[in-house]
Amino acid sequence: MSVLAIVSLKNGQPTKGGLEAASYAAAFAKAQGQDAVALVAGAMTSDGGLGATGIDRVLHFSTELSDSSQWTRLAEAASKECGASTVVLSHDHTGRAIGPRLAVRLQAGMVSGVTELPRDGAVRKNVFSGKAMADVEVSTNAVVYSVTPNAFGVREGGSEAEASPFAAEVGEAREHVTGFDLASADGQTPLPEADLVVSAGRGLKGPENWGIVEDLANALGATTACSRPVSDIGWRPHHEHVGQTGITIRPNLYIAAGISGAIQHLAGVNQSKVIVVINTDPEAPFFKAADYGIVGDAFEVLPKLTAAVKALDA
């Protein structure tokens, strides 16, 4: 018996979501006295660092796949080959496309967006966009879990895993990838995976003022985000929109400047470990959800924070 992690690759390396899925699968396998196996598809050298997360064995399919049913067939074959009744993915695009398809094929109950290891036959996930949690139980023997990014984290310290080639009949591709646009030219960590996020809202007054937000983000190595109205009016791209109807994030640090803290905004960010709010209005609701606050003008405070971060590292 084993636990299988589906790990996606980017530029020959496991994605952070993939490493988190592997870490979760390894920890769960250990608790059950089972083996942890990872499945990858595409070019990757040796174990791709998956052994460090606690994975024992890597099944390596040599061809990159971008079709959700091909991936599903591959994962089904891998789960049969290693006798896995539990399959783990990241709750990113893979957890949304491959996980549910696989659950159908394996007749498995699926719980998406889990944040902790199962306990007493139930597993915890966030619901109501982070306003609450639910402990979910599955009635089938076979189970598929997708793990919320930045919740379980990447484990380290395991020894190198044994990687072996894996072949399976995956059928024809029907989803053909014809191009790719990088989210941001400057190589920021994608928002759902980011540990540090600097976000701004309508208080910034216009898109031409975002330089001071980006300066702080660059100094910290953080990813930029924004409130919904800011992306709706086109000041910032849609993929920066966080909140109940945007992306839900849980970084270590969330700095919000010129954002009032509406309930829909908070829903998507209130799982951040530390929240810093900068707002001219001492009554802004965001202060109630914050750990640290500065009542002040973002146009003055942000450059000072940037300077202080740079001084720290100097």
Binding site: Q107, M110, G130, A132, D135, V136, V138, Q271, I275, A289
Partner: peptide, 13 residues
């Protein structure tokens, strides 16, 4: 194939 056993609210800040 699955059901919620228990809901809970996050701890207050």
């Amino acid at each position: 194939l699955s059901s919620v056993r228990q809901f809970s609210l996050p701890p207050e800040k």
